[in-house]
Design a protein around this nucleic acid. Structure first.
Length: 356
DNA sequence: TCTGGGGTCCTAGGACCC
DNA sequence: TCTGGGGTCCTAGGACCC
């Protein structure tokens, strides 16, 4: 049987790899996937192949900039259906492994809980099974907590295996900047630096209460725990249920007319309601997010009386729309519908933070 | 010609109640 | 006339992840 381990499985350059699989002539070329594949449009990079990354292109970068950096890049549109299908095949392989408990984190990654006396061997077998079934390569992090397994994967890339436990955590991570931690981004790493904490070993050594004034009663202690790599080691395969659904659109040209905004709200409501209706659950709240050109964002939120009636939701959304500040060009409009959630349907399920 | 689209969770501050 | 605290709910705004 062996001891319990957390494995974190992450497909290598997943989206680009799926595109290359169905178009083998792209192998070895700089491939960039983003938006509708048109670098003259407002869009960002979803994934770049390793060949494109060598030019400094990464996900989240404006497609326009990426195209400029790699003049001979092959730029492809995002094809969600294809990635969903490939993802499903990979997750199916993971679930078929002996004794595996699988918690899906996204299209291209999952935690796998196993009992094994040789987790490296288990990981290698898993990689082999995924490759044989899907022709996709993955990297595997092995850890004694979710956080350590997740971070370990970065050292296993590409196509490798790496183990990170309480034993070697500080040796491996101690001198690295806090932004290398899962859950610390640019803002938080900067605020930590202002407190004199720049590397992981410093965060690991800090008294959790010291961080409370800056980050609050939950996040403060949580960042301290993150620095130590501690936290949950329980992989949870409870089926995921969304809290809500949302749609956003970025307009290729900023909206300036009220009628355009009304039209956009109607379209977003229709799209969101399709997702909500598919789950057969009522709506209890609406949020409208407006980004004015170029980058200021305002949100308007309302609780609404529980309803599953599309006309009612539309009326409430148009009511909220009345709050939008007029006479400023609008670049992005987003609408989110919160849905009711039977308490037990998410019991124990912790997709991102609270389970750590 | 700068900055997607789908999510989750946390915090601060005001309103309101007792 | 001036003004307690504690608790909860709601709204707005952030931060982060894939």
């Amino acid at each position: 049987m062996g001891e319990p381990w957390v494995l974190h499985v992450d497909l290598d350059q997943f989206i680009a790899a799926v595109e290359v699989l169905r178009r083998p002539e792209l192998a070895g070329k700089p491939v960039i996937v983003g938006g509708r594949g048109d670098p003259t449009e407002r869009a960002v990079v979803s994934t770049a192949s390793y060949e494109a990354r060598a030019y400094g292109v990464g996900s989240g970068m404006p497609l326009r900039i990426a195209a400029r950096k790699v003049p001979d890049a092959v730029i492809l549109p995002v094809d969600q259906e294809a990635y969903l299908q490939a993802s499903g095949a990979v997750m199916g392989v993971l679930r078929s492994r002996p004794g595996a408990v699988v918690q899906v984190l996204g299209w291209d990654e999952a935690f796998v809980g196993v009992q094994s006396s040789d987790p490296e061997a288990y990981a290698r077998q898993l990689q082999k099974a995924v490759l044989e079934a899907t022709s996709l390569h993955c990297s595997v992090g092995i850890g004694d907590t979710l956080v350590r397994a997740k971070v370990a994967t970065t050292f296993g890339k590409p196509a490798g295996v790496f183990r990170l436990t309480a034993e070697n955590w500080l040796d491996v991570m101690g001198n690295r900047p806090t932004i290398d931690l899962w859950g610390v981004g640019t803002k938080v790493s900067r605020r930590l630096a202002a407190l004199g904490i720049t590397v992981v070993s410093e965060l690991a050594a800090v008294d959790p209460d010291f961080l409370v004034p800056e980050f609050g009663p939950k996040m403060g202690p949580w960042y301290a725990q993150l620095g130590r790599g501690d936290g949950s080691s329980e992989v949870d395969d409870t089926p995921w249920v969304a809290r809500g659904h949302s749609r956003e659109t970025t307009f290729q040209r900023d909206l300036t007319e009220a009628a355009q905004v009304d039209e956009a709200v109607r379209e977003l409501v229709a799209a969101v309601l399709e997702d909500v209706a598919a789950e057969g659950r009522p709506v209890v709240g609406l949020t409208l997010k407006v980004r004015y050109a170029p980058f200021t964002t305002k949100t308007y939120a309302r609780k609404i009386p529980e309803t599953a009636d599309p006309a009612e939701v539309l009326a409430r959304a148009l009511d909220l729309r009345g709050k939008i500040e007029p006479e400023r060009p609008i670049r992005l409009l987003g609408l989110r519908a919160e849905m009711t959630m039977p308490d037990d349907s998410r019991q124990g399920h912790t997709p991102t933070r609270s389970g750590w």
